[in-house]
Design a protein around this nucleic acid. Sequence first.
DNA 1: GCTATATAGATGTATCTACATATATTAGAT
DNA 2: ATCTAATATATGTAGATACATCTATATAGC
Lengths: 151, 151
Amino acid sequence: MKLEQAIQTSKFSSDKHKAVLNILYRAWMVKTTISRELRPFGLSHEQYNVLRILKGSYPQAMRVKDIAIRLIEKSSNVPRIIDKLEDKKLVQRLVSPEDNRETLINLTTAGSKLLEASTRSIQPNTIQSLQLTEKEAAVLNRLLDKIGAGE
Amino acid sequence: MKLEQAIQTSKFSSDKHKAVLNILYRAWMVKTTISRELRPFGLSHEQYNVLRILKGSYPQAMRVKDIAIRLIEKSSNVPRIIDKLEDKKLVQRLVSPEDNRETLINLTTAGSKLLEASTRSIQPNTIQSLQLTEKEAAVLNRLLDKIGAGE
DNA sequence: GCTATATAGATGTATCTACATATATTAGAT
DNA sequence: ATCTAATATATGTAGATACATCTATATAGC
């Protein structure tokens, strides 16, 4: 669906202005799609992302702060996400032997399995539903990477 | 900043996969930038969007449902956003004379002024900071519009 | 060794989001 | 005219977000 239909507007002051709204809209679409897919698994979007990040270093544990910098939404409250995952026995906490301030987090077997199952369910509905060729996706990435060059 | 730096990762299964994360990241950036700019005005991102939508038909009032379809994030709770704006005397509610179920919303003079002031503050930090030419923005919009063709 | 500063993580809180449900009003069917 | 279904908005609630503050531990300077 084109942005114009989605938000019932055709007045944009410029293509740059439209691009800002378009990015916000597509992100919202992707996020809600993923969240709905995750619902049956009892996982929120951010809980799922943390599991994925942990999988990246599995079976090695990760520090909370290293999880935080890998998250897309930097204002996420990682300790609280971990709380939820720990309640569900999907991750384990342990104090770092090197630095007692640090907490190390590791996937449990259950966490690893749930991640796999939920990923299988999400994949077709997000990545693959993008009506783009790999070439187009590459162009899109190049343009998106340019956007924030200022900060 | 490139996505790779932002989330300290370089492993993407494909450009399409990277594109999904990239969109989520850019949207988060834009949203937090705008939210911070709006803070001094006491407006949330969504309150600001509603004011903008109302401005579009000003001085004509709008129905709640017509505001809702113009919002980017469709799960926004419009009546509650209106509550906040009404508390601050930025909008007025009145029952529609044609259909008593409908509520008509209109900007007050204060609302109109605050919108103008806040827009002046936001504009340079969002739209103009996009490091894209209009041509590139047009390409970006074309690709983004293609994405959701499935739904 | 002792105090000041910095860092890691946890916790507190107001607001927002997503979604379910409730209430009021209108339109439609008989 | 009356009952049923649909529509428009409001309200209730669990959980998430953004951000401030607190606690524990570590580092650095003296």
